[in-house]
């Protein structure tokens, strides 16, 4: 296996009022291609901050962040946008679908950043929706879908452009147990059958059980790193 994500001595500080608060203290981390990593820890431990750094949504205060061969800590804001479009698929806790668009139009959004033809975009959207089992709800708007279905649409949107890395921020946080299990099964299937590398932040130990590796953060430091056999 090869390293897809490498963090070297990464720190991240925020300024709150007149105070400088360091959220991550010199984190070193390697994530291999094909891993399904669950980031766990109490609120304020820095897991979402770490996820944002890996996804190129934020820049570290110091240290190196190497993802898919790129030093993303050195990229400008504009270049980082292009980089995210090429490499990252996002799955959010509250789905973040665009309410005015249908499911298929939502899934198509990342493809608008590519040079694919309209026919090719449509074909890929169809494949992605079939993969998450929602092909028949393609013309429905988010408010016509259940929470679980909306999260499936969000997963279809995350995988439609075949990104290098899927990042999930509490993907089951807004779902009931049954829907949560379905979503986790789907993510696990994507990891196992499509070899998708997934980094997931979660509070839920049951959701974390689907991951192949569990990493615990506490007060900005990695405390526990557990790998599970497939």
């Amino acid at each position: 296996m090869t390293a897809l994500v490498t963090l070297r001595n990464v720190t991240k500080s925020y300024v709150r009022g007149k105070q400088k608060v360091e959220v991550l203290h010199g984190v070193d981390l390697t994530i291999e291609t094909g891993e399904f990593l669950a980031l766990m820890g109490p609120s304020g431990s820095g897991k979402t901050t770490l996820l944002n750094l890996v996804a190129g949504l934020d820049q570290p205060t110091s240290g190196e962040v190497l993802v898919a061969g790129d030093r993303i800590d050195q990229l400008s804001r504009g270049s980082l946008s292009d980089w995210r479009a090429r490499h990252i698929g996002f799955i959010f806790q509250f789905y973040n679908l665009l309410p005015v668009l249908t499911a298929e139009a939502n899934v198509e959004v990342p493809l608008l950043l590519t040079n694919l033809s309209k026919a090719e975009r449509r074909r890929r959207v169809q494949v992605a929706l079939e993969l998450v089992g929602l092909a028949e709800r393609a013309r429905h708007k988010p408010n016509e879908l259940s929470g679980g279905q909306q999260q499936r649409v969000a997963i279809a949107r995350a995988i439609v452009s075949d990104p290098t890395l899927l990042v999930c921020d509490e993907p089951t946080g807004d779902l009931d147990r049954q829907n949560a299990e379905e979503i986790m099964n789907l993510l696990q299937a994507l990891n196992r059958s499509q070899n998708k590398t997934i980094v997931m932040v979660t509070h839920d130990p049951k959701a974390a059980e689907y991951a192949s590796r569990e990493l615990h953060l506490d007060k900005g430091l990695l405390t526990n790193d557990t790998r599970r056999a497939a």
């Binding site: 949504l57 479009a85 996002f90 959010f92 973040n96 959004v109 950043l113």
Partner: peptide, 14 residues
Amino acid sequence: LQEIATLRALGFGS
């Protein structure tokens, strides 16, 4: 705000 932040996250430029 949510739409804008989501689109920016997905890679849409400023």
